Simulated scan of single mutants.
Amino acid sequence: MSQILDVSGLTFRHSGKKHWLKKPEIFALGPIDMQVMKGETIAIIGQNRSGKSLLAKMLAGAVEPDAGTIRLLERKYWSVKHRNARKKADITGIRMIFQHSSESMNPGISVGQILDEPLRLNSSLSESQRKDLIADTLVKVGLLREHFYFYRHMLSDGQQQRVSLARAILPDPKVLIADEPFAALDPTIRSQTVNLILRLQKEMGLAFVFISHNLGIVRHIADRVIVMDNGQIIESGKTETIFRWPQHEMTKKLVLSYQSLVPQQTLR
């Protein structure tokens, strides 16, 4: 597999609001170094406030780091020095899937209008070409072409999540970033969504980086696992290696917590 994403020295430092009785809280993340290969699935795990969600947002461009470099296909996607120099084609290279899909959908416009926006802003396709591509993408994520005319209130939770996925893959990205993309779904819909993402990943050659507290899903779909604590990567490796032979105490705690919830015969 060829390298598709290279992160070097990514750093973020945030000071909380001052209070007259105590010092302001300071949260520092990084420096983070990581690489993602084409078609690879990487899970980032850790306890609350470990920095994993913040890292996902920085990778997706939703939060600006204080230092570091992100390279996409060996081209500089982001750096402090070139923070205003990203091209439209680069911006669409990394896309994000939202956890609560309903909150990311404007209830006042149709699915077609929601999906048309990223294409209208980041492509030179004509209106008819965009409409055809949107209809084809709806089918690709398991919806109907007719869903182009639906509104949010007309869709189930699972269908809303598929619209969110369609919006993410429309600009033909190279990397998908997702923060707890399955947490808000019931078990049946969750299983369908996982399988759909795996199929799309294989068809499109996508790299998938996701945050999850569900270590069952992590073990099922991730090629590699990154463990974070207090803004640092404390351990990383192949999924089965992390689950069978965790080294760091925090990793052991997370794995033991998972093992206590599943039948022991499934761990052999």
Rank of each mutant, 00 (worst) to 15 (best):
183 A>H: 06
74 E>G: 10
108 G>H: 14
66 D>K: 12
39 G>A: 10
180 E>A: 04
17 K>G: 03
107 P>T: 04
112 G>L: 01
7 V>L: 02
173 P>A: 00
26 I>G: 08
29 L>D: 10
126 S>W: 08
231 G>L: 05
89 A>E: 15
217 I>D: 05
135 A>Q: 14
223 D>W: 03
131 K>P: 03
245 W>T: 12
232 Q>H: 12
110 S>P: 05
43 A>L: 08
127 E>K: 15
5 L>W: 02
13 R>A: 11
25 E>V: 08
149 Y>L: 11
37 M>L: 13
84 N>F: 13
140 K>G: 01
205 G>H: 08
212 S>Q: 09
98 F>G: 06
208 F>G: 05
86 R>D: 13
188 T>M: 14
40 E>R: 02
116 D>G: 06
24 P>K: 02
211 I>Y: 04
206 L>K: 10
226 I>R: 02
185 L>P: 05
90 D>I: 07
33 D>P: 00
175 V>D: 04
21 L>S: 06
87 K>M: 11
136 D>W: 09
61 G>S: 04
1 M>I: 13
152 R>N: 11
8 S>P: 01
167 R>H: 07
61 G>L: 06
83 R>V: 10
209 V>E: 04
7 V>H: 00
147 H>S: 05
36 V>F: 10
36 V>C: 02
186 D>T: 00
239 T>N: 00
31 P>N: 06
142 G>A: 10
89 A>H: 13
164 S>T: 11
31 P>L: 04
62 A>Y: 12
161 Q>S: 07
186 D>E: 10
153 H>Y: 14
183 A>G: 04
210 F>I: 00
219 R>W: 08
20 W>R: 04
107 P>M: 02
55 L>Y: 07
218 V>R: 03
171 P>Y: 11
195 N>S: 13
194 V>Q: 07
22 K>I: 04
47 Q>S: 14
100 H>A: 12
66 D>R: 08
133 L>R: 15
177 I>D: 07
204 M>P: 00
238 K>Y: 14
107 P>Y: 02
50 S>H: 10
75 R>A: 13
1 M>E: 12
219 R>A: 01
139 V>P: 01
77 Y>C: 08
172 D>H: 14
56 A>L: 00
180 E>W: 01
222 A>G: 02
